[in-house]
């Protein structure tokens, strides 16, 4: 018990030391947003007031009562707003946003996460975007009425700026309706958190797939082993040249696991096409011409996934 007490007490001490220091008196502007807007009055800046951040009724928002207005995000920028002597370069604001600014990514993100702790910033620390030093502003636009990355139709293109390979896959003939603007990346991926390897929205890849394809969850009486383990064994969810987003064309896909003597192991050639001896193992749904329950069967006679 002493050991546990020691561990807990040490943890508490760390918690206390981790709390932000109080009593700072950094150099803020004299008049807050009015100092900023007396110069920055162009449409690009003022678009902020059409969005969610500039709501004076939000007590926790940057423009809520007693909040720090522009400097809630751009940091104390009294030097920037103050007078400069002739010939002296005006100091930059405390923080500017985006990869092409000199403000360190950790500083930029710190401003965002200080407020967004309980929602989108909840799992940020240590996730892959954080580790790879992705700035919040690389994806998000706050000076706008509607942030494109928060809209289903426009979000994928924001993600594709970095994830180019996924853009290519999404254009393949058989893909989720991303190209049509009816599905977004965050439907499957938790971009702000997740402790699984590909930041899935649910705990695992299969759990993520089941959130839309719940009929395949089972458990079935007769399970198909690779299905129970990983949908990605057969499907490429970002897009494929093959129907059903299958990773390969059957029968080769099935033959990469199934090797029973006889029909499962027959090679395929042009003789099995119409005009020759049309093959039930190649044409139409090929293997699934009979084994229609490839995701599992609950029929007592369905052990071969035909029922």
């Amino acid at each position: 018990m002493k050991f546990i007490t020691l561990v807990i007490a040490t943890t508490m001490l760390l918690l206390l030391t981790a709390s932000p220091a109080s009593g700072q008196d950094p150099n803020y502007s004299r008049e807050g947003a009015d100092s900023c807007l007396s110069c920055h009055d162009d449409d690009a800046v003022l678009a902020l007031f059409k969005g969610a951040h500039a709501n004076p009724s939000d007590p926790n928002g940057p423009f809520g009562h007693g909040q720090l207005q522009c400097e809630a995000c751009h940091g104390p920028s009294g030097d920037h707003a103050g007078r400069v002597r002739r010939g002296q370069e005006r100091p930059s604001p405390n923080a500017l946003f985006g990869s092409e600014t000199a403000t360190p990514v950790s500083t930029q993100n710190g401003f965002c996460i200080d407020c967004h702790t309980d929602d989108t910033g909840f799992g940020w620390h240590g996730n892959d975007h954080d580790t790879n030093e992705i700035a919040c502003a690389d994806c998000h636009t706050s000076h706008t009425a509607q942030d494109p990355v928060l809209m289903t139709a426009t979000q994928p293109e924001v993600c594709f700026e970095c994830h180019q390979q996924q853009r290519t896959q999404s254009l393949k003939p058989y893909a989720h309706p991303i190209r049509q603007g009816k599905m977004d990346c965050s439907g499957c991926h938790n971009n702000h958190g997740a402790t699984n390897e590909l930041q899935f929205a649910q705990q695992t890849l299969n759990d993520t797939c089941f959130s839309c394809h719940a009929e395949k969850r089972g458990p079935y009486l007769w399970e198909h082993a690779p299905v129970a383990e990983d949908c990605g064994n057969c499907h490429d969810p970002h897009g494929s040249n093959h129907p059903g987003m299958l990773a390969m064309r059957a029968p080769m896909l099935c033959q990469s696991c199934h090797s029973q003597a006889g029909h499962p192991s027959l090679p395929a050639d042009g003789d099995g096409l119409p005009g020759g001896a049309p093959s039930q193992f190649m044409l139409g749904q090929n293997c699934m011409n009979c084994h229609t329950q490839s995701h599992g069967s609950n029929h007592p006679s369905g052990s071969r996934l035909m029922r």
């Binding site: 220091a21 803020y28 009015d34």
Partner: peptide, 20 residues
């Protein structure tokens, strides 16, 4: 939770803020 900074914002009127 300690406040991020002790700033007197009582004079921050936001007169130029075009709130929607």
């Amino acid at each position: 939770t300690a406040s991020l900074a002790q700033v007197d914002t009582s004079e921050w009127q936001c007169e130029y803020c075009p709130f929607d």
